[in-house]
C-alpha cells in the first residue's frame, strides 16, 4: 500500500471524491483483494474513532450471530443469565425517575449565600451512656443546607436533595453519585450522599463519604466531614475512632460543631 492509495481510501470513505473518481476507485476495490481489506480496516477504524456502529452485515456475520445466540442459550449460560436477572431485580429501587441533563449551576452562589444552618437541640447527659445513644441524640440530617430553588426543578443536585427529603435514599445515592469531584456541588453532594448511606444503614459507605468530604480542605464544608464521621463512629461503637475525630474537631474553634464536641463526654 502506498501513501497516495491511503489518501484515496480516506477521501473515498469520507465522501470527498467526485463521482468519476469514486467510480474508478470502486472498480479498483472490486478487483484488488488487498485494497478491499485496507478499505474495510480503514472504515472500521474511522467508525471506532467517530464512535459509530461498526458495519457488520454480511452472511458470515449473520452465521456468527446465530452461533452467538446458540452460545447464549447453552444451559449453563442460560442459567447464569437467569441468576443475574434475579439478583438484579432485588437491586431495583421502588420509584422510577427520569432526569434531564443539568443545565447550569450559576444559581449556586446565590443559593449558597442563603443557606440557613439549623441548629439542633442537644442533650448532654451526665450519666454514662452507650455510644450509639450519643449518635441518636446528635444526628440531625435536617441540618443539611437546602439548595432547592423554585424554577429549577430538574437540576441534578436538587433531585438528589428531594429524594433524600422524600426518604428515597437509594435514588438519592444513585443521583448524587454522578456529581464529579471537580463540580462545585461536590462537597454538598457528599453531605447528602453520606446522610443517605447512613439512613440506608450502610455505615462504612457513609464514613468513607465523610472522609472524602473531610479531605476537601479547600471547601468550607470540609470540617463537617469530621463531625459526621464522629457521629457514625458513635453509631457503630468505634470509640477510639470517635475520639480521634473529636480531637480533630477540637484542633480549631472554627470547625463545625466545635462547641458540641467540647461537650461530648464519652
Amino acid at each position: 500500500m502506498d501513501i497516495d492509495t491511503l489518501d484515496l481510501i480516506d477521501q473515498y470513505l469520507r465522501g470527498n471524491l467526485s463521482d468519476t473518481e469514486k467510480e474508478a476507485f470502486e472498480k479498483r476495490i472490486a478487483i484488488e483483494e488487498d485494497l478491499q481489506e485496507e478499505v474495510l480496516i480503514h472504515q472500521q477504524l474511522l467508525a471506532i474513532h467517530e464512535q459509530e456502529k461498526i458495519s457488520l452485515t454480511n452472511t458470515s456475520y449473520q452465521q456468527e450471530l446465530v452461533q452467538m445466540n446458540e452460545i447464549l442459550n447453552e444451559e449453563d449460560n442460560a442459567k447464569l443469565s437467569q441468576k443475574i436477572r434475579a439478583i438484579g431485580k432485588n437491586q431495583q429501587p421502588h420509584t422510577t425517575v427520569r432526569f434531564k441533563r443539568k443545565k447550569t449551576v450559576n444559581w449556586f452562589y446565590s443559593a449558597a449565600a442563603s443557606i440557613v444552618v439549623l441548629i439542633s437541640l442537644f442533650f448532654i447527659f451526665n450519666t454514662p451512656k452507650a455510644l450509639p445513644d450519643y449518635y441518636q441524640n446528635y444526628v440531625n440530617w435536617e441540618e443539611l443546607p437546602s439548595f432547592t430553588v423554585k424554577g429549577d426543578p430538574e437540576e441534578l443536585f436538587e433531585k438528589g436533595e428531594v429524594f433524600f427529603k422524600n426518604k428515597e435514599y437509594k435514588n438519592a445515592v444513585a443521583t448524587l453519585s454522578i456529581i464529579e469531584p471537580e463540580d462545585k456541588w461536590y462537597p454538598f453532594a457528599l453531605l447528602y450522599l453520606g446522610a443517605s448511606y447512613d439512613q440506608l444503614n450502610e455505615n462504612e459507605a457513609a464514613i468513607a463519604t465523610f472522609q472524602k468530604l473531610a479531605s476537601l480542605t479547600t471547601s468550607e464544608e470540609y470540617s463537617k466531614g469530621y463531625w459526621y464521621q464522629l457521629l457514625l463512629y458513635l453509631k457503630t461503637n468505634q470509640k477510639e475512632k470517635a475520639l480521634e475525630m473529636k480531637t480533630k474537631i477540637l484542633e480549631n474553634p472554627n470547625h463545625y460543631k466545635y462547641k458540641e464536641a467540647t461537650e461530648l463526654d464519652f
Binding site: 481489506e37 474495510l40 472500521q44 458495519s55 454480511n58 458470515s60 456475520y61
Partner: peptide
C-alpha cells in the same frame, strides 16, 4: 481473519 469475514 474472523473479523475480516464479517465485514467483507
Amino acid at each position: 481473519q474472523k473479523i475480516i469475514k464479517w465485514g467483507a
